[in-house]
Amino acid sequence: MIDSQVPGFWAGLGLPGLADVHTHFLPARMERRVWAHFDEAGPLIGRNWPIHYRDPAETRVKTLQDLGVRMFSALAYAHRPEMAESLNEWTLDFASRTPGCLRSATFFPEPSAAAYVADALTRGAQIFKLHLQVGAFDPRDPLLSGVWDLLSSTGHPIVVHAGSGPVARGFTGPGPIGDVLARFPRLAVVIAHAGAPEYTGFFDLASRYDRVCLDTTMAFTDFFEEMAPFPVGLRPRLRDLGLAGKVLLGSDFPTIPYPYAHQLEALERLDLGDDWLKAVCWTNAHNLIATTPHG
């Protein structure tokens, strides 16, 4: 599949488009630094990772629109103290002027976290992002207790890179975030990359907790299969979770080393059926966001 065939893919399923919960738009300075880290195949990357969509933000928004991505995100993530609040200002403003973009926010373990998360919610934040691998912080940090308590009560989804791929670091793996969920079982956590490479442990969390989901970001693609192959034995569980509303389309656009279409091709070749594809590519994310308070 190539990008020009993507509209035909979702139209053939009878969908109005695609809902992608895991895309990135960042402030220009931060974006340059992130892209440079990918270019250098830095220590958190571990391999050559050419960025396929290295275009200005306006061009990338149009690319998503042309592909038929009707819902997407601007997932920024704080990796040190005193940066989350300014990132939230940027991402919330970006969404306010970008049709189809979810109002995204982030947080970091610091004394002000609960206050600025509450402010982001007041301003209409719809989805949050944490990156435990890059941030190298413990999600069980007491400084986050107020945030977890708040988001547990509101039901706002938090996309969490908790898996140890592509390189294990800090507090990744199902254990740390699993401990958070044991304390706050109503959290709506979306496990990025389907939890690669600890797929089984994260599938167990998705099965155990009502509001825990997985996103497909880069999972099942040739690129990920080379370093974290998805166990064939988990396919029945993947199908069941998807049909139960617990698997959401994610892509990591624009920082992917292949065309957007390849993520969809990778999902299609799992051969889990059209109902599963429809749920994953549109219905599950649409329902999750539609049932979440928006300010």
Rank of each mutant, 00 (worst) to 15 (best):
P56L: 05
G170E: 08
Y53T: 03
R237E: 05
W35G: 07
G8T: 07
L132N: 01
D66T: 15
I45M: 03
A36Y: 08
S73D: 05
R237Y: 01
G8K: 09
D275K: 08
L144P: 08
L248S: 05
T106G: 01
C281A: 10
Y209Q: 01
L214V: 08
R103H: 14
N88D: 07
L277D: 00
R237F: 00
Q65G: 12
R103D: 13
R183F: 07
R54I: 02
V61G: 02
W35L: 13
T106Y: 09
D204A: 10
H22P: 13
R29T: 15
C213S: 15
A194P: 09
L181T: 04
V34W: 13
A285R: 02
H262N: 06
T172M: 09
L277F: 04
G68I: 02
I191Q: 00
E58F: 11
Q133C: 11
F253T: 01
A113W: 05
E58D: 15
N48L: 14
H156F: 11
G178L: 01
T91K: 00
A120Y: 04
P166M: 10
P7V: 08
P43I: 11
G178R: 00
H131M: 12
T200Y: 01
R33P: 02
Y116G: 05
I191A: 00
G42W: 11
R239Q: 08
A11P: 03
G14L: 10
F108V: 06
E198S: 03
T221Q: 13
L18G: 05
R103S: 14
L248R: 01
V117I: 11
G135N: 11
T217S: 13
G163D: 13
T172P: 11
F202T: 06
R208S: 03
L288A: 11
H294G: 06
